[in-house]
């Protein structure tokens, strides 16, 4: 805890960063943290991101896509590392092209690859990163200790980073990404190469940060299960375009009461009877249909309706779209549809 005298020294001795306070004053619950308007990025004339337009505003946003879809390019563009070839990208209300420095004051970034400053202990490294974000030296040291304890590296904080295991390095990267209290934390493949306990710890930490409400999270990963566990919204990219943007909770609700049915016999009469009972029937293939049950209707009633319609149910599967289904559908359907 900073003593009152030291706080006064900070107040009197340092100029408050206007950009920082501008960011602080913006409500953390503002609707959108990332706004893309026809964003295009090209390397050597080759288009990588092709006119992305979307507003992202969830507490934790998953970024999915196959290799080469443009996930990392999008992250780097959001951080101001790549200049857009067209369109605009705004992060926390700041244009990434013209206002990158002010934007970065409110962003924490955990890169995918190993990334460190050579020959440093973890506490020295995290302190340096905090200072670069504008935290005064002594407060930065305090924050470095706190961040390392928070991610579970408290006991190892005086060890050189080169002696860390892969899991510990990932946690050190997470510590440096949160040390300056960013309002948006961009995590690029945070569970890469982690063993199950380390992966569990990483996911728990990310969920804890998400639930604290202090920061929004952009979580890029190949691991669909991780994204499903942590994220509320998911943006799926394919070939540099948006293949889908879904709210997982809404998607689950929309699929509540839905069943996939395979039947033989008089399937036409069966479908008509279900419709008459208030169900929505969407044929998906010959003798197959997705049925959204009427309010209060139980699945067992479907068997009775089938019997009275001279149809036999061969298969009945309660429908619950997993992220895996959503992802694969997005990959099959291409742009914008599920």
């Amino acid at each position: 805890m900073l003593g009152a005298r030291r706080r006064n020294k900070f107040r009197n001795g340092f100029v408050t960063d206007r950009d920082y306070w501008t960011l602080r004053c913006v409500d953390i619950r503002m609707t959108n943290v990332i706004e893309l308007d026809n964003l295009a990025v090209s390397f050597g004339g080759r288009p990588i991101l092709k006119g992305l337009s979307i507003a992202l505003g969830g507490r934790a946003i998953g970024l999915l896509g196959p290799n080469g879809a443009g996930k990392t390019t999008l992250i780097h563009t959001l951080l101001g590392f790549h200049k857009p070839a067209g369109g605009t990208a705004r992060v926390l209300g700041h244009d990434v092209r013209s206002d990158a420095i002010a934007m970065r004051a409110g962003v924490g970034y955990m890169p995918e690859r190993d990334a460190f400053v050579a020959e440093m202990t973890a506490v020295h490294f995290v302190r340096l990163m905090a200072e670069l974000s504008g935290i005064p030296s002594e407060a930065a040291l305090e924050r470095a200790h706190e961040s390392l304890f928070y991610v579970g590296l408290g006991e190892a904080r005086y060890r050189g980073l080169e002696t860390y295991s892969l899991g510990m390095k990932q946690l050190a990267k997470l510590a440096q990404s949160i040390v300056h209290s960013p309002r948006l934390i961009i995590l690029d493949e945070p569970t890469n190469g982690l063993d199950p306990p380390a992966r569990r710890r990483m996911l728990d930490l990310v969920k804890q940060i998400r639930d604290s409400g202090h920061a929004r999270i952009l979580f890029s990963s190949h691991m669909l299960r991780d994204v499903e566990e942590v994220c509320e919204d998911v943006l799926i990219l394919k070939d540099g375009q948006i293949a889908a943007y879904v709210n997982l909770e809404e998607d689950r609700k929309a699929n509540e009461g839905a069943i996939d049915i395979e039947a033989t016999g008089n399937t036409e009469a069966f479908a008509q009877a279900l419709t008459a009972r208030g169900c929505r029937v969407s044929p998906s293939a010959p003798r197959r249909a997705r049925v959204v049950l009427a309010d209060g209707m139980m699945a067992t009633e479907v068997f009775q309706i089938a019997a009275t319609s001279s149809a036999q149910i061969r298969r009945l599967i309660p429908k619950r779209d997993s992220l895996d289904d959503i992802f694969h559908k997005a990959m099959e359907n291409g742009r914008g549809s599920l």
């Binding site: 340092f14 960063d17 040390v179 209290s181 202090h214």
Partner: peptide, 9 residues
């Protein structure tokens, strides 16, 4: 997790 609320350099 708690945010930093102090002044900046």
């Amino acid at each position: 997790y708690s945010p930093y609320t102090g002044p900046l350099t």
